[in-house]
Design a protein around this nucleic acid. Structure first.
Length: 927
RNA sequence: GCCCGGGUGGUGGAAUGGUAGACACGAAGGACUUAAAAUCCUUUGGGCAGUAAUGUCCGUACGGGUUCGAGUCCCGUCCCGGGUACCA
């Protein structure tokens, strides 16, 4: 009987579905474990072989944890709002819900084909109204909270207004807009309800603002910073321009410090944590106000090096700075106007390309150094960004290379400020070492002494203060799109109000077209008679892609709850994700927003833990491995030459579908049939009777003809082989090309395993009840140890060889003993669940129960060796091996080694300088 | 530029500071077969010497260093991949 993988896999997939094998309850005597994959966007192209990599890894881990006695939550769902469905809808007029539904069905079919142990009863889809009801609900909660800095958490707006009424706006230390009015309690209480409401809008965690956004005219939408790459949209590559628009914003900056500090508590890769730290971009420094000469006004700058203040020889403002007009003297007006104009016209791309070039213009005005009253010229330069800090910097050319370049270019003075600075004439020196010189009140001090001295001086005079700046901005939350969650807000007299909670979900209305309206409103503006309570305008933008994915792990805990996003009991039980697996392209998007929402949900008593995912693993990308044929240039009839001979011709390489190539050998007939551009009389120049293709590693994509569909692999080799092979390819976190060439190795292993149970000729079951020998137990327990340890650290690529070695060993030992094979099946079950269930049944066990067997326990007693083969090194090079009892004493070993013939030969009669004996490792004789 | 990864046979890769190349693919040779498939056996980093067993030298991007011993640790250089950028 052959290993009939197709029948076996179908049988067990049906069994699991019928018996609800992987259904999991929210209560159990067992400890819980939550393993989550980043859920996919169901694209029209279906899964390719790269997608399941992480799912296979997390599935193995889930199955392993089940066998280790955990109650494992391992769900799957779909991030089903998104642009491609909408673009398709624009082209075809088909409702995105319809295509999304079709795509999801296809995904589920493909996923079920691979034998994952998902609890499908918990599936969620972000585009379902019963799901996005809760996305909208969270939005409303954000709207009803503000961030209190003293409590260091979100508090209800009702608390804010109560405190305003009792003690005025100054009594609350909150994160808010820059332009909030300062009111006493009496002044506050004298305001109308609407006026008070308008003020609270400046405090809420989600708010409306006119924001400069990345407007993409081609897509008709606003893009997040991380959706824009090099000035064009990441999706589609369309031009993006800066535009001021009314947008919903998320006050994520309120959580900046918690987002930063939380990184120290999670087991995530250092690279992701570092990316998030950079994204948040916290810098500690001071703000300093420079009075403008002959003016009442001051220019505020932010600096991380307030200690260098006596080295300031000029100030630089962003060309967009609000004081530019005022500061420009008549003589400089023409030059300034020209510069500002040129800056406006330069695209971001130009600005990036000219990073090295110094440009700028003098305004004609001066300000005064607050410490010594020195006159400081004010320049404009486009290297200063309006959006960061205050849009103005104090320039210290002796300590900052960019300032040094600028000073040198414009002939401005460069003042040394530290005695440890060197070579100021050649370049800047940013050192903090040494003692200050030319520095007024801090002369002679060290860096550590100078900073507090200066900050105190500034604060006493109200000229500045210690300040922390963040690179991170509040997140734009509006999208001018159709296929997303409607924002549950209506407008009355120009002010936004929440719709009643009982009216949630606010469902997407029908529209005639999925395009902006003629007047430039988002597509929702097309909905007929779409008004709240029949009279109020709804918000017409929808939520961004990340809204639905920023809390979905909670919904899996209690996916059908109509009253809450998840019950308190469910959240108390599952708490947070123990292992989260996904691609690292989400490093600063999804993973940062999710942390933000989780922290907010913790503040309002829903989440149990500060961080939503304890451990995060980023699987590597599976790249494509493209194959090429080589067409001889200008050949008639068309001539293709095998890769090994292409050097003899002038050739054009052409991509060829990898699915008609095996071991880099082209199936010429299929090639002729599949390509209309290959004439029937095409000539193929072969080597050794074969047409060998060239290859290259590229992105996996249709256009490169290198996409491999997991369904095809499953059809040919089975899901278990696919699972093993994807793990066998290399470390989970590495990117690697998919190369089907090696897959027969894992397939052969499963067949070899099968032959331990069955005689393939006769089909007879050959399993015996004999007692295991020490040798067999040793082989088995080596594998148990290796596999158990490897899974814990997600080193799946090294467990597969352990299985192969065990199968090879047992084959050589002619071992068909149930006592050994039972445990083999169990340790293999997480990797290859179908064949494991089948063989488990063959061994006489109850059908479908291998899933819940205890993972075999490694017994070190079986691995004890009574002797050890010592490599004997002479000066670090192995010259012999000698066997010694395991408990041999080093001095005995040394004596015998020195007496050895080979060692004697190398000693040439000399006495060794040293003999190193490492028990059960090695012996090194140093001559 | 800066911050992370990484560079090991023809290929994917393995290796708590202790015999580099496990395991697998591919390749070559052989057995079985009328033949093929499947299976099994042998060889497979490179050079030199030897009929052979074997011996010997070189070898983990490159150059140094630490160590009895370095793919592994340290310093410097080069290359590849990812992230990020006039961030004050």
């Amino acid at each position: 009987m052959e290993y009939a993988f197709r029948d076996i896999e179908k049988k067990w997939q049906a069994f699991w579905e019928k018996n609800q094998t992987y259904r999991v309850e929210n209560q159990s005597d067992k400890p819980k474990y939550y393993v989550l994959d980043m859920f996919p966007y169901p694209s029209g192209a279906g899964l390719h072989v790269g997608h399941p990599l992480g799912y296979i890894a997390s599935d193995i881990f889930s199955r392993f944890k089940r066998m280790k006695g955990f109650n494992v939550l391992h769900p799957m769902g779909f991030d089903s709002f998104g642009l491609p469905a909408e673009q398709y809808a624009i082209q075809t007029g088909q409702h995105p819900a319809v295509t999304t539904e079709q795509n999801i069905s296809r995904y589920i079919e493909q996923l079920k084909n691979i034998g994952f142990s998902f609890d499908w009863s918990r599936e969620v889809r972000t585009s379902n109204p019963d799901y996005y009801k809760w996305t909208q609900w969270i939005f409303q909660e954000l709207f009803q909270h503000y961030y209190d800095k003293d409590a260091d958490k979100a508090l209800p707006v009702s608390e804010l207004t109560a405190r305003f009424a009792a003690a005025g706006t100054k009594s609350v230390n909150a994160v808010c807009d820059e332009d909030v009015p300062v009111l006493s309690a009496d002044e506050w209480n004298a305001l109308s309800e609407t006026e008070q409401y308008a003020i609270t809008l400046k405090y809420r965690l989600t708010y409306v603002a006119d924001a400069v956004v990345n407007w993409c005219p081609a897509l008709g939408t606003v893009l997040a910073n991380d959706e824009v790459k090099d000035g064009v949209s990441e999706r589609g590559g369309y031009p993006v321009e800066q535009k001021l628009m009314r947008q919903w914003m998320m006050r994520i900056t309120a959580y900046a410090d918690r987002l930063l500090n939380g990184l120290n508590t999670v087991d995530w890769s250092e690279s992701i944590k570092e990316q998030q730290r950079n994204w948040i971009g916290r810098s500690q420094g001071a703000s300093v106000r420079f009075p403008i000469e002959n003016s009442e006004r001051q220019i505020e700058v932010f600096t991380t090096r307030v200690d260098t203040i006596y080295g300031v020889t000029f100030l630089v403002l962003a060309p967009e700075h609000e004081y530019v007009d005022e500061l420009t003297t008549p003589e400089q007006k023409a030059a300034v106007d020209a510069y500002v104009d040129a800056t406006k016209r330069r695209s971001e791309l130009d600005r990036m390309m000219e990073v090295k070039k110094v440009s700028g213009v003098f305004t004609g005005s001066y300000c005064l150094n607050p410490f010594n009253g020195e006159k400081v010229p004010i320049y404009l330069a486009d290297y200063v960004l309006a959006g960061y800090g205050t849009g103005a910097v104090m320039a210290v050319p002796s300590g900052d290379q960019r300032d040094w370049n600028f000073a040198t270019h414009f002939g401005l003075p460069i003042i040394p400020i530290l005695d440890a600075q060197k070579d100021i004439a050649e370049q800047a020196d940013a050192t903090k070492e040494g003692h200050y010189i030319n520095s007024g009140i801090i002369n002679g001090m060290s860096y550590a002494e100078a900073v507090p001295t200066l900050v105190n001086w500034l604060e006493e005079r109200g000229l500045g203060k210690g300040k922390i700046n963040y690179r991170m901005r509040d997140a734009v939350f509006s999208r001018q799109r159709y296929w997303g969650e409607p924002v549950p807000v209506f407008f009355k007299d120009g002010l936004p109000y929440l719709i009643d909670e009982k009216d949630l979900p606010l469902e997407l209305p029908a529209v005639d077209k999925y395009l902006p309206t003629e007047t430039g409103e988002p597509p929702l503006g097309r909905a007929a008679d779409w008004k709240y309570k029949g009279e109020y305008e709804y918000e017409l933008s929808t939520m961004p892609g990340w809204a639905g994915s920023s809390w979905y792990w909670f919904r899996y805990m209690d996916p059908r709850n109509d009253n809450e996003l998840a019950s308190k009991e469910a959240i108390a039980y599952w708490k947070s994700i123990d292992l989260y697996v996904g691609g690292n392209e989400h490093a600063t998007g999804h993973l940062l927003y999710s942390r933000f929402w989780n922290k907010f949900l913790k503040d309002i008593g829903i989440a149990e833990e500060e961080e939503f995912a304890k451990k995060l693993v980023n699987q590597g990308m599976i790249q494509g491995r493209s194959n090429f044929v080589y067409r001889v240039k200008d050949s008639q009839p068309a001539t293709f030459v095998s890769a090994g001979l292409k050097g003899q011709y002038e050739v054009t390489p052409l991509h060829v579908d990898v699915n008609i190539v095996e071991q880099d050998v082209l199936d010429v007939e299929k090639f002729k049939q599949s390509r209309t551009d290959v004439p029937a009389d095409a000539v193929f120049i072969l080597e050794d009777g074969k047409y060998v293709c060239g290859w290259e590693v590229e992105k996996m994509s249709k256009s490169k003809f290198n996409v491999v569909n997991p369904d095809d692999v499953v059809e040919r080799y089975g899901a278990d082989t696919l699972r093993l092979y994807e793990m066998f390819l290399g470390p989970l976190t590495d990117s690697k090309p998919w190369n089907t060439n090696g897959i027969s190795g894992t397939f052969n292993f499963l067949r070899k395993l099968w032959r331990l149970f069955f005689d393939e000729q006769t089909g007879k079951n050959v399993v015996t009840e004999d007692a295991a020998t020490p040798e067999e137990l040793k082989a088995l327990h080596k594998a148990i140890k290796k596999v158990g340890e490897d899974i814990e650290v997600l080193s799946f690529n090294t467990s597969v060889p352990a299985f192969m070695v065990l199968a090879n060993d047992l084959t050589s030992l002619k071992c068909h003993k149930k006592a050994i094979l039972s445990d083999f099946v169990k340790i293999l079950a997480p990797f290859a669940p179908h064949i494991a269930e089948e063989l488990w049944e063959v061994l006489g066990n109850e059908a479908g129960t291998v899933t819940f067997q205890e993972f075999p326990v490694f017994n070190p007693a079986f691995l004890v060796e009574n002797s050890f083969e010592y490599p004997i090194q002479i000066n670090g090079k192995v010259r012999a091996t000698l066997s010694f009892p395991a408990d041999a004493q080093p001095k005995d070993i040394e004596a015998e080694v020195l007496a050895n013939e080979t060692v004697q030969k190398w000693l040439e009669g000399k006495t060794p300088k040293k003999v190193v004996v490492v028990p059960k490792r090695i012996v090194n004789v140093v001559i």
